[in-house]
Design a protein around this nucleic acid. Sequence first.
RNA 1: GGCGCGUUGGUCCAUCUGGUUAAGACGCCACCCUCUCAAGGUGGAGACAACGGGUUCGAGCCCCGUACGCGCUACCA
Length: 496
Amino acid sequence: MGIRVRFAPSPTGYLHIGGARTALYNYLFARHNNGKFILRIEDTDEVRSTKESVDAILKGMKFLGLDYDEGPFINKKGEIEEKGNFGPYFQTQRIFLYKDFVDKLLKEGKAYKCYCTVEELAKKRELSNLEKRPPKYDNHCRHLTHDQILNYEKEGRKPVIRFFNDGLGETKFNDIIKGEISFNNSLLDDFVIVKSSGIPIYNFAVVLDDALMEISHVIRGDDHVSNTPRQIMLYKAMGLKIPEFAHIPMILGGDGARLSKRHGATSVLAYKDMGYLSEALVNYLSLLGWSTSDSQQIFKFNELIEKFDLYRCNSSAAIFDNKKLDWMNGEYIRSKTKDEFFELAVIELEKSGLITREKAIEKKAELEKILSLEHEKVKHLTEIPELYDFMLLDEINYNEKDAEKVFKKDPVNTKKILVEINEEMKKIGNFSAENIEKLFREYSEKNNIKTSLIFHPVRVATSGRAKGPSLFHYMEILGKEKVMSRINKTLSKYFN
RNA sequence: GGCGCGUUGGUCCAUCUGGUUAAGACGCCACCCUCUCAAGGUGGAGACAACGGGUUCGAGCCCCGUACGCGCUACCA
Protein backbone atom coordinates (compact mmCIF):
# COMPACT_ATOMS: atom_id res chain seq x y z
CA MET A 1 0.00 0.00 0.00
CA GLY A 2 3.02 2.23 0.57
CA ILE A 3 4.03 4.62 -2.15
CA ARG A 4 7.12 3.64 -4.08
CA VAL A 5 8.34 5.55 -7.10
CA ARG A 6 11.44 5.33 -9.20
CA PHE A 7 13.55 7.37 -11.53
CA ALA A 8 14.94 5.05 -14.18
CA PRO A 9 17.37 6.76 -16.53
CA SER A 10 19.28 4.92 -19.18
CA PRO A 11 23.02 5.55 -18.96
CA THR A 12 23.49 6.67 -22.52
CA GLY A 13 24.54 10.19 -21.61
CA TYR A 14 24.64 12.65 -18.75
CA LEU A 15 21.69 13.59 -16.58
CA HIS A 16 19.92 16.18 -18.66
CA ILE A 17 17.37 18.81 -17.77
CA GLY A 18 14.40 16.70 -18.75
CA GLY A 19 15.58 13.70 -16.77
CA ALA A 20 16.36 15.92 -13.84
CA ARG A 21 12.83 17.21 -13.73
CA THR A 22 11.42 13.71 -13.97
CA ALA A 23 13.68 12.70 -11.10
CA LEU A 24 12.62 15.76 -9.14
CA TYR A 25 8.91 15.12 -9.58
CA ASN A 26 9.38 11.53 -8.49
CA TYR A 27 11.37 12.67 -5.52
CA LEU A 28 8.88 15.34 -4.52
CA PHE A 29 5.95 12.98 -4.88
CA ALA A 30 7.66 10.34 -2.77
CA ARG A 31 8.74 12.72 -0.03
CA HIS A 32 5.40 14.47 0.04
CA ASN A 33 3.64 11.16 0.57
CA ASN A 34 6.19 9.63 2.87
CA GLY A 35 6.97 7.08 0.23
CA LYS A 36 10.18 5.61 -1.10
CA PHE A 37 12.21 7.03 -3.93
CA ILE A 38 14.26 4.56 -5.93
CA LEU A 39 16.96 5.01 -8.53
CA ARG A 40 17.26 2.28 -11.11
CA ILE A 41 19.65 2.24 -14.04
CA GLU A 42 18.11 0.94 -17.24
CA ASP A 43 21.20 -0.21 -19.03
CA THR A 44 19.73 -2.84 -21.31
CA ASP A 45 20.93 -0.92 -24.34
CA GLU A 46 24.21 -2.78 -24.46
CA VAL A 47 25.64 -0.67 -27.26
CA ARG A 48 25.02 2.79 -25.94
CA SER A 49 25.22 2.35 -22.18
CA THR A 50 28.43 3.50 -20.54
CA LYS A 51 29.94 3.54 -17.11
CA GLU A 52 30.77 7.23 -17.48
CA SER A 53 27.10 7.97 -17.96
CA VAL A 54 26.26 6.12 -14.77
CA ASP A 55 28.77 8.26 -12.91
CA ALA A 56 27.44 11.42 -14.48
CA ILE A 57 23.88 10.54 -13.52
CA LEU A 58 24.83 9.73 -9.95
CA LYS A 59 26.78 12.96 -9.66
CA GLY A 60 23.91 14.90 -11.16
CA MET A 61 21.49 13.47 -8.62
CA LYS A 62 23.84 14.39 -5.85
CA PHE A 63 24.27 17.93 -7.10
CA LEU A 64 20.51 18.40 -7.18
CA GLY A 65 20.22 17.00 -3.69
CA LEU A 66 17.83 14.27 -4.75
CA ASP A 67 18.70 11.55 -2.30
CA TYR A 68 17.05 8.20 -2.84
CA ASP A 69 16.18 5.36 -0.53
CA GLU A 70 17.28 2.59 -2.82
CA GLY A 71 19.65 2.30 -5.72
CA PRO A 72 23.28 2.66 -6.71
CA PHE A 73 25.44 5.39 -5.23
CA ILE A 74 29.10 6.34 -5.13
CA ASN A 75 30.65 5.41 -1.81
CA LYS A 76 33.50 7.14 -0.01
CA LYS A 77 36.06 5.14 -1.90
CA GLY A 78 34.58 6.32 -5.17
CA GLU A 79 33.11 2.95 -6.02
CA ILE A 80 29.56 2.25 -7.01
CA GLU A 81 27.59 0.51 -4.32
CA GLU A 82 23.91 -0.31 -3.94
CA LYS A 83 21.43 0.06 -1.14
CA GLY A 84 17.91 -1.31 -0.79
CA ASN A 85 16.15 -4.66 -0.56
CA PHE A 86 14.77 -4.82 -4.08
CA GLY A 87 18.05 -4.98 -5.96
CA PRO A 88 19.98 -5.31 -8.05
CA TYR A 89 19.32 -1.81 -9.32
CA PHE A 90 21.06 -2.18 -12.65
CA GLN A 91 18.68 -3.66 -15.14
CA THR A 92 21.30 -5.85 -16.82
CA GLN A 93 22.01 -7.49 -13.49
CA ARG A 94 18.37 -8.39 -13.14
CA ILE A 95 18.17 -10.55 -16.22
CA PHE A 96 18.14 -13.75 -14.21
CA LEU A 97 14.94 -12.55 -12.58
CA TYR A 98 13.11 -12.48 -15.88
CA LYS A 99 13.70 -16.04 -16.99
CA ASP A 100 10.80 -17.65 -15.14
CA PHE A 101 8.39 -15.06 -16.47
CA VAL A 102 9.57 -15.57 -20.01
CA ASP A 103 9.27 -19.34 -19.69
CA LYS A 104 5.80 -19.02 -18.30
CA LEU A 105 4.67 -16.71 -21.09
CA LEU A 106 6.16 -19.12 -23.62
CA LYS A 107 4.49 -22.11 -22.03
CA GLU A 108 1.12 -20.41 -21.87
CA GLY A 109 1.35 -19.39 -25.50
CA LYS A 110 1.38 -15.72 -24.59
CA ALA A 111 4.75 -15.34 -26.21
CA TYR A 112 6.65 -17.15 -28.90
CA LYS A 113 10.05 -17.39 -30.50
CA CYS A 114 10.57 -15.48 -33.71
CA TYR A 115 13.40 -16.39 -36.04
CA CYS A 116 13.05 -13.55 -38.49
CA THR A 117 16.32 -11.73 -39.03
CA VAL A 118 16.64 -7.98 -38.76
CA GLU A 119 17.28 -7.87 -42.49
CA GLU A 120 14.09 -9.74 -43.27
CA LEU A 121 12.11 -7.50 -40.99
CA ALA A 122 13.63 -4.37 -42.47
CA LYS A 123 12.66 -5.54 -45.92
CA LYS A 124 9.08 -6.15 -44.84
CA ARG A 125 8.90 -2.79 -43.20
CA GLU A 126 10.14 -1.14 -46.34
CA LEU A 127 7.48 -2.92 -48.32
CA SER A 128 4.63 -1.86 -46.09
CA ASN A 129 5.95 1.67 -46.19
CA LEU A 130 5.91 1.52 -49.95
CA GLU A 131 2.35 0.24 -49.88
CA LYS A 132 1.50 2.95 -47.36
CA ARG A 133 0.43 0.39 -44.82
CA PRO A 134 1.30 0.66 -41.15
CA PRO A 135 4.59 -1.16 -40.60
CA LYS A 136 3.36 -3.97 -38.43
CA TYR A 137 5.00 -7.31 -37.80
CA ASP A 138 3.22 -9.91 -39.96
CA ASN A 139 3.15 -12.62 -37.27
CA HIS A 140 5.26 -14.81 -39.53
CA CYS A 141 6.60 -16.94 -36.68
CA ARG A 142 3.44 -17.24 -34.66
CA HIS A 143 2.73 -20.80 -35.65
CA LEU A 144 5.90 -22.37 -36.88
CA THR A 145 5.99 -26.13 -37.28
CA HIS A 146 8.45 -28.23 -35.39
CA ASP A 147 10.43 -28.77 -38.59
CA GLN A 148 10.59 -25.09 -39.44
CA ILE A 149 11.96 -24.35 -36.01
CA LEU A 150 14.51 -27.12 -36.33
CA ASN A 151 15.60 -25.73 -39.68
CA TYR A 152 16.01 -22.23 -38.37
CA GLU A 153 17.98 -23.52 -35.43
CA LYS A 154 20.18 -25.51 -37.77
CA GLU A 155 20.82 -22.33 -39.76
CA GLY A 156 22.16 -20.89 -36.57
CA ARG A 157 19.43 -18.30 -36.21
CA LYS A 158 19.07 -16.87 -32.75
CA PRO A 159 15.41 -16.15 -32.02
CA VAL A 160 13.87 -13.15 -30.33
CA ILE A 161 10.82 -13.62 -28.18
CA ARG A 162 7.66 -11.83 -29.14
CA PHE A 163 4.57 -11.12 -27.16
CA PHE A 164 1.43 -12.69 -28.60
CA ASN A 165 -1.09 -9.89 -28.97
CA ASP A 166 -4.53 -11.16 -29.90
CA GLY A 167 -5.49 -7.66 -30.97
CA LEU A 168 -8.84 -7.85 -29.27
CA GLY A 169 -10.47 -5.04 -27.38
CA GLU A 170 -8.72 -1.96 -26.14
CA THR A 171 -6.27 -1.03 -23.44
CA LYS A 172 -6.99 2.00 -21.35
CA PHE A 173 -5.54 3.59 -18.33
CA ASN A 174 -6.21 6.64 -16.27
CA ASP A 175 -3.18 8.85 -16.33
CA ILE A 176 -2.81 11.06 -13.27
CA ILE A 177 -1.75 13.99 -15.43
CA LYS A 178 -3.34 13.32 -18.81
CA GLY A 179 -6.56 11.68 -17.76
CA GLU A 180 -8.07 8.68 -19.48
CA ILE A 181 -6.16 7.38 -22.47
CA SER A 182 -7.17 4.41 -24.54
CA PHE A 183 -5.64 2.44 -27.37
CA ASN A 184 -7.13 -0.06 -29.73
CA ASN A 185 -5.25 -3.32 -29.26
CA SER A 186 -5.52 -4.24 -32.90
CA LEU A 187 -3.14 -1.43 -33.73
CA LEU A 188 -0.30 -2.99 -31.77
CA ASP A 189 1.72 -5.83 -33.19
CA ASP A 190 3.50 -8.78 -31.64
CA PHE A 191 6.29 -6.71 -30.22
CA VAL A 192 9.64 -8.12 -29.15
CA ILE A 193 10.16 -8.67 -25.45
CA VAL A 194 13.54 -10.42 -25.48
CA LYS A 195 16.30 -9.68 -27.96
CA SER A 196 18.21 -12.47 -29.65
CA SER A 197 21.07 -11.65 -27.31
CA GLY A 198 18.85 -12.81 -24.48
CA ILE A 199 18.58 -9.31 -23.10
CA PRO A 200 15.02 -8.16 -22.54
CA ILE A 201 13.64 -5.17 -24.36
CA TYR A 202 12.81 -2.05 -22.42
CA ASN A 203 9.05 -2.50 -22.47
CA PHE A 204 9.37 -5.94 -20.93
CA ALA A 205 12.14 -5.23 -18.44
CA VAL A 206 10.49 -2.08 -17.18
CA VAL A 207 7.29 -3.96 -16.40
CA LEU A 208 9.03 -6.70 -14.50
CA ASP A 209 11.30 -4.33 -12.65
CA ASP A 210 8.52 -2.02 -11.63
CA ALA A 211 6.38 -4.95 -10.55
CA LEU A 212 9.16 -6.72 -8.69
CA MET A 213 10.27 -3.51 -7.04
CA GLU A 214 6.65 -2.93 -6.06
CA ILE A 215 6.51 0.46 -7.72
CA SER A 216 3.15 2.03 -6.99
CA HIS A 217 3.33 5.05 -9.32
CA VAL A 218 5.22 5.27 -12.57
CA ILE A 219 6.10 8.91 -13.12
CA ARG A 220 7.99 9.48 -16.38
CA GLY A 221 8.19 11.59 -19.52
CA ASP A 222 5.21 11.55 -21.81
CA ASP A 223 7.28 10.10 -24.61
CA HIS A 224 6.32 6.85 -22.91
CA VAL A 225 2.57 7.29 -23.25
CA SER A 226 2.43 5.23 -26.39
CA ASN A 227 4.46 2.47 -24.76
CA THR A 228 2.10 2.17 -21.85
CA PRO A 229 -0.52 -0.04 -23.53
CA ARG A 230 2.18 -2.57 -24.42
CA GLN A 231 3.29 -2.57 -20.84
CA ILE A 232 -0.21 -2.93 -19.51
CA MET A 233 -0.71 -5.94 -21.78
CA LEU A 234 2.36 -7.48 -20.23
CA TYR A 235 1.23 -6.74 -16.69
CA LYS A 236 -2.03 -8.47 -17.49
CA ALA A 237 -0.42 -11.41 -19.26
CA MET A 238 1.79 -12.07 -16.29
CA GLY A 239 -0.87 -11.43 -13.71
CA LEU A 240 1.03 -8.54 -12.17
CA LYS A 241 -0.44 -5.57 -10.41
CA ILE A 242 -0.66 -2.54 -12.68
CA PRO A 243 0.75 0.64 -11.13
CA GLU A 244 -0.64 4.15 -11.46
CA PHE A 245 0.80 6.17 -14.34
CA ALA A 246 1.68 9.83 -14.50
CA HIS A 247 3.19 11.13 -17.72
CA ILE A 248 4.82 14.49 -17.47
CA PRO A 249 5.17 16.58 -20.61
CA MET A 250 8.39 17.22 -22.47
CA ILE A 251 10.70 20.17 -22.07
CA LEU A 252 11.41 21.98 -25.30
CA GLY A 253 14.06 24.44 -26.39
CA GLY A 254 13.37 28.03 -27.40
CA ASP A 255 12.54 26.95 -30.94
CA GLY A 256 9.85 24.55 -29.83
CA ALA A 257 11.92 21.48 -30.60
CA ARG A 258 12.79 18.92 -28.01
CA LEU A 259 15.51 20.24 -25.73
CA SER A 260 18.91 19.10 -26.91
CA LYS A 261 22.55 20.05 -27.07
CA ARG A 262 21.73 22.51 -29.79
CA HIS A 263 19.98 24.68 -27.24
CA GLY A 264 23.11 25.02 -25.16
CA ALA A 265 23.89 22.97 -22.12
CA THR A 266 21.32 20.42 -21.18
CA SER A 267 23.46 18.54 -18.71
CA VAL A 268 22.68 19.29 -15.12
CA LEU A 269 26.37 19.28 -14.29
CA ALA A 270 27.02 21.79 -17.05
CA TYR A 271 24.61 24.13 -15.31
CA LYS A 272 26.62 23.70 -12.17
CA ASP A 273 29.74 24.66 -14.08
CA MET A 274 28.01 27.73 -15.44
CA GLY A 275 27.48 28.99 -11.94
CA TYR A 276 23.96 27.92 -11.15
CA LEU A 277 22.94 26.93 -7.66
CA SER A 278 21.20 23.61 -7.36
CA GLU A 279 18.43 25.26 -5.35
CA ALA A 280 17.71 27.60 -8.23
CA LEU A 281 17.74 24.83 -10.79
CA VAL A 282 15.47 22.67 -8.64
CA ASN A 283 13.09 25.52 -7.99
CA TYR A 284 12.99 26.48 -11.64
CA LEU A 285 12.48 22.91 -12.80
CA SER A 286 9.73 22.34 -10.27
CA LEU A 287 7.77 25.14 -11.87
CA LEU A 288 8.23 23.86 -15.38
CA GLY A 289 5.01 21.90 -15.56
CA TRP A 290 3.69 22.38 -12.08
CA SER A 291 2.33 25.32 -10.15
CA THR A 292 0.29 26.27 -7.14
CA SER A 293 -3.00 28.07 -7.61
CA ASP A 294 -1.48 31.27 -6.23
CA SER A 295 1.45 31.10 -8.66
CA GLN A 296 4.08 31.12 -5.96
CA GLN A 297 7.53 31.36 -7.53
CA ILE A 298 10.17 30.89 -4.86
CA PHE A 299 10.03 27.80 -2.70
CA LYS A 300 12.25 26.52 0.04
CA PHE A 301 13.12 22.90 -0.60
CA ASN A 302 10.89 21.72 2.23
CA GLU A 303 8.13 23.88 0.94
CA LEU A 304 8.36 22.16 -2.41
CA ILE A 305 7.94 18.81 -0.74
CA GLU A 306 5.04 20.10 1.24
CA LYS A 307 3.22 21.74 -1.65
CA PHE A 308 4.07 19.60 -4.64
CA ASP A 309 1.06 17.90 -6.14
CA LEU A 310 1.21 15.54 -9.08
CA TYR A 311 -2.44 16.19 -9.79
CA ARG A 312 -1.69 19.84 -10.41
CA CYS A 313 0.86 19.14 -13.11
CA ASN A 314 0.35 20.59 -16.53
CA SER A 315 -0.19 18.26 -19.44
CA SER A 316 1.42 20.33 -22.17
CA ALA A 317 5.05 20.73 -23.11
CA ALA A 318 7.03 23.66 -21.73
CA ILE A 319 9.84 25.70 -23.20
CA PHE A 320 12.95 26.04 -21.09
CA ASP A 321 13.57 29.72 -20.39
CA ASN A 322 17.12 30.57 -19.39
CA LYS A 323 16.19 34.14 -18.56
CA LYS A 324 13.88 33.11 -15.79
CA LEU A 325 16.41 30.63 -14.47
CA ASP A 326 18.96 33.46 -14.36
CA TRP A 327 16.61 35.62 -12.37
CA MET A 328 15.90 32.81 -9.98
CA ASN A 329 19.58 32.05 -9.57
CA GLY A 330 20.16 35.69 -8.66
CA GLU A 331 17.37 35.48 -6.13
CA TYR A 332 18.99 32.47 -4.50
CA ILE A 333 22.46 33.97 -4.50
CA ARG A 334 21.09 37.14 -2.93
CA SER A 335 19.41 35.12 -0.24
CA LYS A 336 22.72 33.60 0.83
CA THR A 337 24.18 34.72 4.14
CA LYS A 338 27.59 36.36 4.31
CA ASP A 339 29.18 33.10 5.34
CA GLU A 340 27.48 31.06 2.66
CA PHE A 341 28.34 33.56 0.00
CA PHE A 342 31.93 33.62 1.20
CA GLU A 343 32.16 29.86 0.76
CA LEU A 344 30.70 29.98 -2.73
CA ALA A 345 32.88 32.90 -3.74
CA VAL A 346 36.10 31.34 -2.51
CA ILE A 347 35.56 28.40 -4.81
CA GLU A 348 35.19 30.68 -7.83
CA LEU A 349 37.98 33.00 -6.78
CA GLU A 350 40.32 30.11 -6.28
CA LYS A 351 39.35 28.60 -9.60
CA SER A 352 40.24 31.81 -11.36
CA GLY A 353 43.55 32.09 -9.54
CA LEU A 354 42.70 35.38 -7.86
CA ILE A 355 43.25 34.04 -4.38
CA THR A 356 44.12 30.80 -2.66
CA ARG A 357 41.80 29.20 -0.19
CA GLU A 358 44.36 29.58 2.62
CA LYS A 359 44.73 33.26 1.95
CA ALA A 360 40.98 33.73 1.71
CA ILE A 361 40.43 32.16 5.06
CA GLU A 362 43.30 34.09 6.60
CA LYS A 363 41.81 37.36 5.40
CA LYS A 364 38.20 36.31 5.75
CA ALA A 365 36.99 39.47 7.45
CA GLU A 366 38.39 41.71 4.77
CA LEU A 367 37.29 39.46 1.94
CA GLU A 368 33.78 39.38 3.31
CA LYS A 369 33.72 43.14 3.28
CA ILE A 370 34.79 43.12 -0.33
CA LEU A 371 32.25 40.47 -1.22
CA SER A 372 29.37 42.35 0.30
CA LEU A 373 30.09 45.14 -2.16
CA GLU A 374 28.62 43.25 -5.11
CA HIS A 375 26.80 40.33 -3.55
CA GLU A 376 23.36 41.36 -4.77
CA LYS A 377 24.58 41.80 -8.30
CA VAL A 378 25.70 38.23 -8.89
CA LYS A 379 23.52 36.20 -11.22
CA HIS A 380 25.97 33.38 -11.89
CA LEU A 381 28.68 32.31 -9.50
CA THR A 382 31.09 32.31 -12.40
CA GLU A 383 30.80 36.10 -12.62
CA ILE A 384 32.39 36.51 -9.24
CA PRO A 385 36.02 36.75 -10.33
CA GLU A 386 35.44 39.45 -12.91
CA LEU A 387 33.24 41.35 -10.49
CA TYR A 388 35.89 41.55 -7.81
CA ASP A 389 39.23 41.23 -9.53
CA PHE A 390 40.03 44.93 -9.22
CA MET A 391 39.67 44.65 -5.47
CA LEU A 392 42.04 41.70 -5.24
CA LEU A 393 44.63 42.45 -7.88
CA ASP A 394 47.59 44.74 -7.25
CA GLU A 395 47.70 45.73 -10.86
CA ILE A 396 44.30 46.73 -12.26
CA ASN A 397 43.15 46.01 -15.75
CA TYR A 398 41.72 49.00 -17.51
CA ASN A 399 38.68 48.61 -19.64
CA GLU A 400 39.91 50.63 -22.56
CA LYS A 401 36.47 51.57 -23.74
CA ASP A 402 35.56 52.96 -20.35
CA ALA A 403 38.89 54.73 -20.02
CA GLU A 404 38.48 56.27 -23.43
CA LYS A 405 34.99 57.46 -22.71
CA VAL A 406 35.68 58.96 -19.31
CA PHE A 407 39.20 60.30 -19.69
CA LYS A 408 39.21 61.58 -23.24
CA LYS A 409 36.09 63.66 -23.06
CA ASP A 410 37.77 66.57 -21.34
CA PRO A 411 41.36 65.49 -20.71
CA VAL A 412 42.62 68.79 -19.41
CA ASN A 413 40.03 69.25 -16.73
CA THR A 414 39.88 65.60 -15.89
CA LYS A 415 43.59 65.53 -15.30
CA LYS A 416 43.37 68.59 -13.13
CA ILE A 417 40.58 67.05 -11.09
CA LEU A 418 42.41 63.79 -10.60
CA VAL A 419 45.61 65.55 -9.56
CA GLU A 420 43.84 67.83 -7.16
CA ILE A 421 41.55 65.29 -5.61
CA ASN A 422 44.49 62.99 -5.10
CA GLU A 423 46.28 65.78 -3.30
CA GLU A 424 43.18 66.55 -1.25
CA MET A 425 42.82 62.96 -0.11
CA LYS A 426 46.14 63.16 1.67
CA LYS A 427 44.35 65.26 4.23
CA ILE A 428 41.92 62.56 5.21
CA GLY A 429 42.88 61.08 8.53
CA ASN A 430 40.38 58.27 8.73
CA PHE A 431 39.93 57.02 5.18
CA SER A 432 36.30 56.06 5.58
CA ALA A 433 33.61 56.08 2.92
CA GLU A 434 31.88 58.84 4.79
CA ASN A 435 34.96 61.03 4.96
CA ILE A 436 35.91 60.44 1.38
CA GLU A 437 32.46 61.35 0.18
CA LYS A 438 32.48 64.48 2.32
CA LEU A 439 35.80 65.54 0.88
CA PHE A 440 34.67 64.88 -2.68
CA ARG A 441 31.52 66.87 -2.24
CA GLU A 442 33.31 69.77 -0.63
CA TYR A 443 35.82 69.80 -3.44
CA SER A 444 32.99 69.77 -5.93
CA GLU A 445 31.29 72.71 -4.30
CA LYS A 446 34.42 74.76 -3.76
CA ASN A 447 35.46 74.43 -7.38
CA ASN A 448 32.00 74.44 -8.78
CA ILE A 449 32.44 71.14 -10.57
CA LYS A 450 29.61 68.68 -11.11
CA THR A 451 30.06 65.67 -8.90
CA SER A 452 29.77 63.29 -11.81
CA LEU A 453 32.86 64.89 -13.36
CA ILE A 454 34.77 63.82 -10.30
CA PHE A 455 33.16 60.51 -9.42
CA HIS A 456 33.39 58.89 -12.82
CA PRO A 457 37.04 59.61 -13.52
CA VAL A 458 38.00 58.52 -10.04
CA ARG A 459 36.03 55.34 -10.46
CA VAL A 460 37.76 54.43 -13.68
CA ALA A 461 41.13 55.56 -12.32
CA THR A 462 40.84 53.34 -9.26
CA SER A 463 38.98 50.34 -10.64
CA GLY A 464 39.72 50.46 -14.35
CA ARG A 465 36.08 50.44 -15.31
CA ALA A 466 32.92 52.51 -15.35
CA LYS A 467 30.73 49.98 -13.63
CA GLY A 468 31.20 48.80 -10.11
CA PRO A 469 30.17 49.02 -6.52
CA SER A 470 29.48 52.10 -4.50
CA LEU A 471 32.54 54.29 -5.13
CA PHE A 472 33.37 55.48 -1.63
CA HIS A 473 32.76 52.13 -0.08
CA TYR A 474 35.20 50.29 -2.25
CA MET A 475 37.71 53.12 -1.89
CA GLU A 476 37.57 52.73 1.84
CA ILE A 477 38.32 49.02 1.61
CA LEU A 478 41.08 49.62 -0.94
CA GLY A 479 42.72 52.09 1.44
CA LYS A 480 44.24 55.48 0.91
CA GLU A 481 47.58 54.28 -0.33
CA LYS A 482 46.24 51.99 -3.01
CA VAL A 483 43.71 54.54 -4.15
CA MET A 484 46.31 57.27 -4.48
CA SER A 485 48.83 55.11 -6.25
CA ARG A 486 46.20 53.91 -8.68
CA ILE A 487 45.25 57.45 -9.48
CA ASN A 488 48.88 58.30 -10.02
CA LYS A 489 49.35 55.32 -12.26
CA THR A 490 46.29 56.32 -14.26
CA LEU A 491 47.63 59.84 -14.55
CA SER A 492 50.88 58.69 -16.05
CA LYS A 493 49.21 56.13 -18.28
CA TYR A 494 46.46 58.30 -19.77
CA PHE A 495 47.36 61.91 -19.19
CA ASN A 496 50.90 62.37 -20.42
C1' G B 1 0.80 6.76 -43.29
C1' G B 2 -1.53 4.93 -38.47
C1' C B 3 -2.25 5.79 -33.34
C1' G B 4 -1.67 8.86 -28.96
C1' C B 5 -1.01 13.54 -26.54
C1' G B 6 -1.02 18.73 -26.61
C1' U B 7 -2.47 24.27 -28.15
C1' U B 8 -4.22 30.84 -22.49
C1' G B 9 0.34 37.60 -23.79
C1' G B 10 7.66 36.59 -26.14
C1' U B 11 8.27 32.59 -21.90
C1' C B 12 6.46 29.74 -17.33
C1' C B 13 1.62 29.48 -15.86
C1' A B 14 -3.46 30.72 -12.60
C1' U B 15 -8.60 30.71 -13.49
C1' C B 16 -10.57 24.49 -8.35
C1' U B 17 -16.89 20.64 -10.43
C1' G B 18 -18.78 26.58 -17.08
C1' G B 19 -20.63 33.17 -14.75
C1' U B 20 -13.43 37.15 -13.15
C1' U B 21 -12.09 43.95 -15.92
C1' A B 22 -8.56 36.38 -17.91
C1' A B 23 -4.61 36.73 -12.08
C1' G B 24 0.73 36.09 -10.94
C1' A B 25 6.04 35.42 -12.29
C1' C B 26 10.23 36.02 -15.93
C1' G B 27 11.41 39.21 -19.88
C1' C B 28 10.46 44.15 -22.09
C1' C B 29 9.45 49.71 -21.49
C1' A B 30 9.04 54.15 -18.33
C1' C B 31 9.70 56.60 -13.84
C1' C B 32 11.69 56.76 -8.67
C1' C B 33 16.09 55.73 -5.71
C1' U B 34 21.30 56.90 -7.13
C1' C B 35 28.37 58.31 -7.91
C1' U B 36 28.09 54.00 -12.37
C1' C B 37 26.05 49.04 -12.93
C1' A B 38 22.86 46.11 -10.43
C1' A B 39 19.31 45.33 -6.61
C1' G B 40 14.81 47.54 -4.76
C1' G B 41 10.11 50.51 -5.41
C1' U B 42 6.04 52.33 -8.60
C1' G B 43 3.59 52.17 -13.08
C1' G B 44 2.94 50.45 -18.25
C1' A B 45 2.64 47.84 -22.94
C1' G B 46 1.44 42.83 -24.21
C1' A B 47 -3.74 37.30 -24.61
C1' C B 48 -10.52 38.97 -27.10
C1' A B 49 -7.77 31.79 -24.43
C1' A B 50 -4.91 27.98 -32.26
C1' C B 51 -9.14 28.10 -35.74
C1' G B 52 -14.33 26.62 -37.07
C1' G B 53 -18.77 24.65 -35.46
C1' G B 54 -22.04 23.08 -31.69
C1' U B 55 -24.37 22.24 -26.28
C1' U B 56 -25.99 26.19 -22.76
C1' C B 57 -29.42 31.90 -20.36
C1' G B 58 -23.98 31.96 -20.32
C1' A B 59 -17.64 28.38 -22.47
C1' G B 60 -10.75 29.43 -22.06
C1' C B 61 -13.25 25.64 -19.21
C1' C B 62 -18.10 20.42 -22.04
C1' C B 63 -18.71 17.92 -27.31
C1' C B 64 -17.28 17.50 -32.65
C1' G B 65 -14.18 18.92 -36.71
C1' U B 66 -9.75 21.44 -38.85
C1' A B 67 -4.80 23.25 -38.51
C1' C B 68 -0.26 23.17 -36.23
C1' G B 69 3.34 20.96 -32.74
C1' C B 70 5.29 16.84 -30.18
C1' G B 71 5.58 11.56 -29.15
C1' C B 72 5.18 6.29 -30.36
C1' U B 73 5.01 3.09 -34.52
C1' A B 74 13.16 -0.71 -33.52
C1' C B 75 16.30 -7.16 -31.68
C1' C B 76 16.71 2.17 -28.36
C1' A B 77 15.25 3.56 -23.67
